[in-house]
Amino acid sequence: MAIEYKKSVATFSEFISVEEAEALLEWLLKNPKGKVNFAECTHIHASSLQVLMALKPTIVAEPKDADLAVWLKVALAD
């Protein structure tokens, strides 16, 4: 599984495909204070990206992938 959900943190690893979006939305709705960890993430499909943009969870770690980091920064900036 590309997103691993723990109590309060969702950890994204490598390539997040289109199927993840629905589960991500559910988890974020159920855990409004849920945080996200992108450290090992290399790409997020647009479907999950729009979920993140809509709910703006707290980021605990930015991706090591510099290009993705820039995109996430502009997407999730307030």
Binding site: L25, M53, A54
Partner: peptide, 20 residues
Amino acid sequence: IILNNTAPILAEMDVYSNQL
């Protein structure tokens, strides 16, 4: 990136319809 989410409540957001 601009998000044009039209769903009034987030729970009804259609994640598989592109809004970006």
